[in-house]
Design a protein around this nucleic acid. Structure first.
Lengths: 75, 75
DNA sequence: TCTCCATGTCAAAAATTTCTTACATGGCTC
DNA sequence: GAGCCATGTAAGAAATTTTTGACATGGAGA
């Protein structure tokens, strides 16, 4: 199965600050299913670059304002 | 099959400006195979967010300095 | 209470990305 | 020419992401 990726995201917070947009509404806007939004928010797997870009666009922010790389160790 | 995503990238240029790093060397650094690097450079599909972050890191730039969303317009 | 909505879980199928292996070409050097 | 190295193609297997559909829970409101 999929490992948890070393990437965290603020999708949930962004939804809240975006007029309490629901997962279903976000899913519809970016063209994926609600299951996908749930899985991304829960960090079960990281989305495709394409979905990531679409999410950032919906919220009008940069990709790295939504997703961030937080690998503890790495040379 | 996969559609070509509305995302372009400068991986090839970055390799060149990075001391002519080969595809094989880049692949090894980001932990994927050479085939994957080729496919990404050719835009056959967009990489996972994880691979995208690793590529940006290798070149010491931001994610959006490597990959950019170029969709004509959204509805 | 009953209904609606948002969130969440689960499982299996479908789609996409990545890997593995093998082979081809062009450039360069010896 | 022979030997490398970098790039490219191709096909199938493996892994991961996304979809589909069904069901459960809690909160808000009528």
């Amino acid at each position: 199965m999929a490992k948890r990726p070393p990437i965290s995201n603020r999708v949930k917070q962004l939804r809240e600050t975006h007029d309490g947009m629901s997962q279903a509404a976000l899913a519809k806007e970016i063209g994926v299913t609600r299951q996908t939004v749930i899985a991304i928010e829960q960090g079960r797997y990281s989305p495709s670059l394409e979905s990531a870009f679409r999410i950032a666009r919906v919220f009008g922010v940069g990709l790295e304002d939504v997703f961030s790389w937080d690998d503890p160790q790495d040379s």
